[in-house]
Amino acid sequence: MSSETIKPSIWAFANPTRFMGFANKAIPVLVIITFLLLAVGLWLSFIAPEDYQQGYTVLIMFIHVPAAWLAMMTYSVMSISAIGTIVWRHPLADVSLRSAAPLGAMFTILALATGSLWGKPMWGTWWEWDARMTSVLVLLIIYLGLIALSKAFDEPSEAALPLAVMTLTGFAIIPIIKFSVDWWNTLHQPASVSRLDKPAMGPEFLYPLLIMALAYMAIFFTLHMMAMRNEILNRRIRTMKMSAARKQSVTIPNEGAT
């Protein structure tokens, strides 16, 4: 029982085995839903008419806006997981937080990249240091910092609480960054973002956008569940290797370190 006493936080509280069973059943369903939503969303996007102001570049909106929403949603999922870690010390919450971080970083990068590709033809610039873009860039830095933190500990279970505390601290600052939009705009005044938000969207654009957002959400939940499954397997392998090493070190003490 030695590994149980050394690492009680991993296996004692939750039931990752049950989660694995659920995930194995749920993932195929999620994959099908994702592809269906994507197909419908893309079809609706491509039959959408040309916007009188933006031309065909509205097509970028259908992948840019969902990516930006998902960048925020992923952080919310991570924050909820962080609460799970802090309050209940639930290991699955840590697994969830850790597997969501790279996905969040990916969506943030996509939002920035597609936004940049949209900004060039519309506003004539790849990048503008306005509040919206800068705050999303800060979000990306926070994601990358959290990923770095999750990899910095030798013992993964030790990283759980630091990660959770840091994630929640980051969340407390995100609304503040968001509110700064108004303040900062008075200094820099880029007409860009407000022009982008203002047009009351017609249904011919709104429906494809919403379906694409749902499709992106489905992508996130599918990949998140798959990544969580990987992370649980990772920890099992780790535990097994450690117990194997311990057994070896009992029989052949000198080779215990290898």
Binding site: I60, L110, T114, L117, W118, P121
Partner: peptide, 13 residues
């Protein structure tokens, strides 16, 4: 005229 921006953004995503 903006195909050069639309197509790459889809490819990147």
């Amino acid at each position: 005229e903006h195909a050069g921006f639309i197509i790459p953004s889809y490819i990147i995503s």
